[in-house]
Design a protein around this nucleic acid. Structure first.
Lengths: 243, 243
DNA sequence: CAGTATCCGATGCGATACTG
DNA sequence: CAGTATCGCATCGGATACTG
């Protein structure tokens, strides 16, 4: 009975041997989001040691979850999910749905990383909805250590800047970082936070109106929203019971 | 940012902090199966250090998944799942379904433990279907280190014996251990294995006929069966493609 | 850019023994 | 029965440096 195994002929045990250790579910989350390059994976997993990421990718490859593909020139490597890996979507969804419902209090400051937020947003931009001409969106997070970030949106390429790219800004988004995280994860609607004034968007009217169409929220946002509704429903009926 | 956390405000990360470490998914599997006592949990998790089981139970209690209830006399403790814990059924099911499909080759000898198998079967006996009078079922696993096991079935109590209880045997089940595991987990039907002669049941005719009604298979059996069908379907259509 | 190699301190895991 | 206590070893996490 090898190390890291449970010695039980049980599907839950076998699945847990592959998936249930530190960092692995988050690596799979990144791969499911379409991240393929080593450095991009690392970027979405702040704090993971590079050596551990490499080791996990090797193990996932051995377990038939990940396939490593060399570019024709052999210069770069792309990690992609096998069919077995794609099918882990159901497991990650179940984890996320449960987490959204039972283990998702409001964020603590250490959990809010504006660079990571923009990196996540970057891959949820619908390029096909963007205007032809490049749009520069600046984000201001007043109290964060680093206040200003930029998203450069063009149909051919979307990129994140943490230094001023020098272009004219088309849209300026001003929000408390925690608030914008809540919007991103579906706990708060963008419309409502704009009405409340906790998120302000400045720029040409048609760009402001189009902005929400360019950006898909987090893949977890529907689950978080559903959990909020379910829990407020529970709270409501509990109140009705006691009232 | 505490140890064991990921520092990300993400539902998958938070759920993984609670569930995705060694032994924890299997402990939850046991709790979902209705196991409540410390020693019974240990029995279903061969190889877990007692200290680690204790530590995990404390953590699950802290995380709102488990509640620990003292008996009125304060002599014994029962671990039970909170609503959040019950809701982990979906996650464990997803893990098991994935495992059954993608990580469940035929068992290796180290994974076959007849004592554990009978312990699992014990809790899947439908007491309400048992006859009034006690039924003694002996299991013979020819090549196993320990060959003989007994299940004592009565509406009031079901128990496992690893020593001869001395009662007259009503039913004798003879099978290769791996084969009986396959039946238990839904990879092989009891009827078919009896036809093939890989499982033999000896005893009074009406008891033999009633036996399958007393025993529910593993909770994972439907998923394993579905996975077998799905994979053979894939194999079939692949053959059709190439043929 | 995409990793691998190495080092070190902290934690986790597993085995054994002990307690009320 | 239901845990605690202890201890050695392996792995993890974090830092730094190196390679093609």
């Amino acid at each position: 009975m090898g190390a890291g195994t449970y010695g039980q002929w049980c599907p839950v045990a076998h699945a847990s041997e592959i998936l249930a250790d530190r960092w692995t579910p988050l690596i799979v989350r990144e791969l499911l989001a379409g991240i393929q390059r080593f450095n991009d994976l690392e970027r979405g997993l702040p704090g993971i040691p590079r050596s551990l990421l490499a080791q996990r990718l090797h193990r996932l490859e051995r377990d038939g979850v990940v396939r490593r593909r060399m570019s024709p020139q052999g210069r770069t490597v792309a990690y992609e999910l096998t069919p077995a890996g794609e099918d882990l979507q159901r497991v990650v969804d179940a984890l996320g749905t449960w987490g959204a419902r039972w283990a998702f209090p409001d964020p603590v400051p250490d959990e809010l990383d504006p660079g990571l937020l923009l990196w996540w947003m970057r891959r949820r931009i619908r390029r096909e909805c963007l205007p032809e001409r490049r749009v520069v969106v600046q984000f201001d997070f007043p109290v964060a250590r680093k206040e200003h970030f930029w998203l450069l949106l063009a149909p051919t390429e979307v990129s994140v800047c943490i230094e001023d790219p020098g272009f004219e800004v088309d849209l300026l988004v001003i929000a408390d970082l925690a608030t914008f995280y809540r919007v991103w994860l579906g706990r708060l609607s963008l419309e409502q936070s704009q009405r409340e004034g906790t998120v302000a968007i400045v720029g040409r009217r048609e760009l402001i109106r189009a902005f929400p169409d360019w950006l898909d929220l987090s893949p977890m946002a529907p689950a978080v929203r559903a959990a909020s509704l379910a829990m407020s429903g529970v709270a409501k009926s509990e109140n009705e019971d006691t009232g």
